[in-house]
């Protein structure tokens, strides 16, 4: 009797590596499966279409979209400056910009509070101008932008640096002004990275919880985004919390799918 070994892709991998890899995968996937198994499918539609759910979803989409636009408007120039410009302390700036990535969101919320809050750094100035940010939808957008911005900056900056300035030099010698070079050459060349960075930023904004609850408060239709609604629903209606969680999982899976696609397109 002969034993036939099946050839595996990546056959240089030691067999034992599959065990921790499998456990790791289970650790990530099992909770999701468990959650999905708890979804009460019969009630799903009414739960998702309740007034508070729809309001939270609409608010989340609106604020995340606004935050994403802000991220693009601010993050693209940031990425370009960090990748291209030469100034003292650039390496430090590069690290600091990524800080919100590693900070617990609650810390971000507290930091925002001490900046834009009434007694914050800019709070008095803003109050004189008649602007109140805390407890407003603006605060939600600020919190989301704060946490999402590094995702866009990090993916775009890397792409710009990898792309190099060869094409930009050529464009300049063809008579293109810097703005035209940026819009017609630099950005189209890094478009896949810009797209995936934007999608990631949107996803991060959509999932933002800690900074929002710390900084913006929680009021239906004003500051209570989907994650806050889920957290609150958990108190009284776990089924609704699970149903709304499912919405976020679906959005996250879609987002990952989108970035994977743009990611593969960008590789030559």
């Amino acid at each position: 009797m002969t034993i036939r070994r099946r050839p595996h892709a990546g056959s240089h991998l030691p067999a034992w590596a599959f065990v921790p890899a499998g456990i790791g995968a289970a650790l990530v996937l099992l909770p999701l499966v468990a959650m999905v198994s708890r979804v009460s499918w019969g009630n799903l539609w009414p739960l998702l279409t309740s007034e508070s759910s729809l309001t939270a979803l609409a608010l989340s989409l609106r604020t995340s979209a606004t935050a994403t636009v802000l991220c693009v408007l601010l993050g693209v120039p940031m990425a370009l400056v960090l990748a291209r410009a030469r100034f003292p302390g650039r390496d430090l700036a590069r690290s600091l910009v990524l800080l919100p990535l590693v900070l617990p969101p609650v810390v971000g919320g507290i930091a925002l509070l001490y900046t834009f809050g009434r007694r914050g750094l800019l709070g008095h100035t803003l109050e004189v101008l008649g602007v109140q940010i805390a407890f407003s939808t603006t605060a939600v957008v600020l919190a989301q932008t704060f946490v999402a911005l590094p995702f866009l900056v990090i993916s775009l900056e890397g792409a710009v640096r990898t792309a190099g300035d060869r094409y930009e030099t050529v464009a300049a010698t063809l008579g293109a002004r810097p703005t035209r070079v940026l819009l017609r050459v630099t950005l189209p060349l890094v478009a896949p990275a810009l797209a995936s960075g934007t999608v990631l930023a949107f996803a991060r904004a959509l999932g933002e919880f800690g900074a929002t609850i710390t900084f913006a408060g929680s009021l239906q239709g004003v500051t209570r985004t989907l994650p806050l609604e889920i957290y609150l629903q958990r108190e009284t209606d776990p089924d609704a919390a699970v149903a709304l969680s499912l919405v976020l999982v679906v959005v996250a899976v879609t987002v990952i799918g989108l970035t994977r696609r743009t990611g593969t397109e960008s590789t030559p």
Binding site: L113, G117, R118, R119, A134, F135, I213, A216, G217, S218, L219, Q220, T223, R224, L228, Y231, L232
Partner: peptide
């Protein structure tokens, strides 16, 4: 007509302490 309905009493207290 509250400006925020917080998740916990601690959150309410902290908003007052912070002066918000």
């Amino acid at each position: 007509t509250p400006v925020s309905e917080e998740q916990s009493v601690t959150d309410v207290l902290n908003k007052v302490i912070a002066g918000e």
